[in-house]
Write a protein that binds this DNA or RNA. Structure first.
Lengths: 127, 127
DNA sequence: CCGTATCCGTCTGGATACTG
DNA sequence: CAGTATCCAGACGGATACGG
């Protein structure tokens, strides 16, 4: 489980609280769109429509939904400019940036094991 | 996008192939159950039923499904012992172990930003 | 013990239309 | 431009049963 990384600075109930939260956040964040959005945000500030273009194949609905979720968990900051037409900027918070590092590593991994994956797939599919 | 990590040792078509594969693998792997299974496997060898217990809440079906997927992508090795009753062992491959490191980091992250996330959530939910 | 197949409700997620 | 609401097809995922 996700809790075997916990160090022992909490008491019993805190531990259980941390546990269930960790599990919740993990379920929230460990999904395709969320991670792709985080990756797309990078170090910059992005507008809604920019993100929509950069995260290929994402629908309007999924984008708002995931952005709300990321905002709720404190990974993304949303700033609304009261102009006409409205302009909304999204930026990664410090926590978001930290998580992005791990997403970067996942991307690295994908490319490092590119060949391995490809051959393993065709070997598997050959049955 | 996931491709901005590519270094230039491929030609045009290879690049596009690597791109779409990366995207595919990313979609496969970036899901709750897959990551929890990888985390549960750890450095050891696990049997089907052991995994079923360790990954809390996973159903029989989801476990087999994800294990097949991980096997196909070369993250998990499956060895069948021809005994009665049958015994099947699952182990992370080198690629799997490498990916597990990033999952570990994600878990670390969850705990490091525990407080931040919690306060951000209650702040958000207060509206 | 491990795996596959089937059934069937639930939820996801896309398309569309409408507000500020 | 950004966001919300509604509708609905199709995928997901759990329960169950059966086979090796």
């Amino acid at each position: 489980m996700v809790t075997n990384q916990l160090n022992g600075t909490f008491d019993e109930t805190d531990l259980r609280r941390a546990d269930s939260l960790a599990r919740e956040v993990f379920s929230d964040v460990a999904n395709k769109w969320a991670l792709l959005i985080i990756e797309a945000l990078g170090d910059d500030t992005r507008r809604f429509t920019e993100l929509r273009q950069e995260v290929e194949g994402i629908s309007h609905k999924m984008l708002t939904q995931n952005l709300r979720m990321l905002e709720r968990n404190g990974l993304v900051e949303r700033t609304v400019h009261p102009t006409v037409p409205p302009r909304v900027d999204y930026t990664l918070t410090e926590a978001g940036l930290a998580l992005r590092k791990t997403v970067d590593w996942m991307c690295d991994w994908t490319h490092r094991y590119f060949t391995h994956i490809e051959t393993s797939r065709s070997r598997f599919d050959a049955r």
